[in-house]
């Protein structure tokens, strides 16, 4: 299945849906991961977002709680 997974549709959320989802929740109830580069993060980022550039994600998986819903951007 791994190869098919490569092309599997990743579940996506519009920004509006993400905003709705986060509203009223404690930032520690979910993972919000910013996968861009540090310079981009510095310019602007969403409140509470954890910065893990996509290239480093594989090495930082233990820093993210699997049990929580996760949003990447």
């Amino acid at each position: 299945m791994a190869l098919l997974d490569y092309f599997k549709p990743v579940v996506s959320m519009t920004a509006e849906e993400a905003r709705e989802f986060m509203k009223g929740k404690n930032p520690d109830d979910y993972n919000l991961i910013d996968v861009r580069q540090p310079a981009e993060y510095e310019l602007k980022h969403l409140a509470g977002a954890k910065l893990i550039p996509v290239g480093e994600l594989q090495n930082h998986l233990n820093e993210v709680d699997k049990a929580r819903p996760t949003i990447t951007y």
Partner: peptide
């Protein structure tokens, strides 16, 4: 339980 935010921060 993962979702990718369409359009990223620009859409936001």
């Amino acid at each position: 339980n993962i979702a990718s935010m369409q359009g990223g921060i620009r859409a936001w």
